[in-house]
Design a protein around this nucleic acid. Sequence first.
DNA 1: CCGACTTTGTGCATCCGTTCACAAGCGCGT
DNA 2: ACGCGCTTGTGAACGGATGCACAAAGTCGG
Lengths: 240, 240
Amino acid sequence: MGEQGSRGPAAPARLRAGVPDATVARLPGYLRALRALADAGRTTVSSEALATAAGVGSAQLRKDLSHLGSYGTRGVGYEVAELVFHISRALGLGRRWPVVLVGVGNLGHALAGYGGFDDRGFSIAALFDVDERRIGERVGEQRVRHLDDLDDVVGAFGVCIGVIATPAHAAQDVCDRLVAAGVTSILNFAPTLLRVPPQVDVRKVDLSNELQILCFHEHRKGFALVEPLLDESMTGEVSA
Amino acid sequence: MGEQGSRGPAAPARLRAGVPDATVARLPGYLRALRALADAGRTTVSSEALATAAGVGSAQLRKDLSHLGSYGTRGVGYEVAELVFHISRALGLGRRWPVVLVGVGNLGHALAGYGGFDDRGFSIAALFDVDERRIGERVGEQRVRHLDDLDDVVGAFGVCIGVIATPAHAAQDVCDRLVAAGVTSILNFAPTLLRVPPQVDVRKVDLSNELQILCFHEHRKGFALVEPLLDESMTGEVSA
DNA sequence: CCGACTTTGTGCATCCGTTCACAAGCGCGT
DNA sequence: ACGCGCTTGTGAACGGATGCACAAAGTCGG
C-alpha cells in the first residue's frame, strides 16, 4: 500500500489510510476509557488524563490520535463525545456488525451471554453447532442452528465476522466453511493455527498460550530472587 | 544487553536471561506445533517445516530458538523431543503451576472446563466467587469456594497465577485481593484496565477489543473494494 | 489588547523486532 | 577420506514503534 506525499498543503492531509496496527490495537482501549469518562460526567479530557485512564503514556496517546486527525484543542484537551465519535468511525463502528458464532459448548454459551457483543456495535446474527442435541436450543435471544445453514445466514445478514468456539479438531473445518460462506474476519478461540486465504484476517485467543506467557515471567521472577545475576549452569544438563 | 564476541569459542555464551517478549509470546505456539509433530510420529523437524506448522517465517523461528540456545543440528534440523524439552524449560513448565480462578459465571465455567488448564502444566487449585448461591457448587473436580478463603488457598498451594473472570465492576477489587494474597501474575478476562504494583504481570483478554480490531480491518477492506486509492472525503462530515 | 500559561501535535532520536543473506557446520554418498 | 549439499545460527540492514522535547496554538486573566 503506497501512501506517500503528505507534503501537499492544499490537500487536508488525510492519513486515515495509514493507521499503524499497534495504534489500532489500542483504540478500543481509548474508547472504553472515554466512555467511562463520559459516564462520569466529564465532557473534556487532556491527553495526560486519558492516557492514564487507558494505561499508556500521554505522548503515545497523542501520537495515536494524530493518526486519525487533529481533534484536540490546544490548551484545553479533547472533547470526550467528539473523540468517541471519531475513534468509533475510524474503527468502523458506525454501523452494527452482525457476527456468527460457531460452537455452542461451554465457551460458546459464555461468549453468547457476554455483554461484549450487544454492548457496542455487534450483534449475534446466529449461533451454530453440529451437535444434533444442541440444535434448536435457546441461548439468549437466539436459537442454535445447524452449521449447514451457515451460507443462508451469512448471505442474508451480510455477515463478515465469524467467531470459532469449537474444539480444536473441528476448528479448521469450521473455518473453511466460514470462509467459503464469505466471512472475511475470524476470531478463533480454538487452540489451533487456522489456514486461511490471504484476504481473511484471523485473530486468536488462547487461554493456554496466555498462561504459558505469564508462566515464563513468573519463572523469571523466581530466578531473579534467588540468583539475580548468575546464569543457570546447573540446570543445563537435566536431560540424558 | 552486551552479547558481543561470539568469536571466543571457549565461552558458551549463555543468553538465557535475555529472551525478548515477542519471542516468548511465540514459544507456546512452537510448543503446540512440536507436540502435533510428535503425535504424528516425527522425530526431527527442520526450521522450515516447524515454522510453517507454527505460522511464522523460518528465519524468525531460528532467531527465536537461538535465544534459548543452540539445540539444532546443521544439515539435519531439530530433534522434536529435545526441542519440546528445552522450550518447556525456558517457559518454566518444568513444574505444575497451580492457578486460582475467580468468578464462576458463564465464562468461569467455560474456563474451568476448558482443556487448556490441566492439559499442560497447569492445575486449578481452587475456584472462587462471592455469590452465595454458587458457593459449594461443583465444577469439574473442584467445589466453588468463597473469595474470603483466597489467602488460605494461595498460601497453602503457593499459587502465583490468578485468573479473573468476573464482571468488570468487580475486577479491580478481586485483583487487589489476589495481589494482597501474594499472586504475582494475573490473566484478566474482564473488560477493565487493572491497576497493579509494578512487580505484578497482567495479561488481558477482551472479546470486545478483538472484535473491534477485526472490525477495523473489515472496514478498510470495504473501502479497498469500492475506492482503492481515493481518500474518503465524503465520510468526513457525517456529524453536525 | 497583551502576555503568561496550558496542552496539543510532531520532528527526532532511540530502541526493538523482523527479515535477508550467508558463512559455519554436519551428515552422507562415493 | 573427501567433497557435496543441506540446514542451522547469526551478522547486518531495514522498518516500525516508543518516548522525549519543543514549537505551534489556543485559553484565560489582567
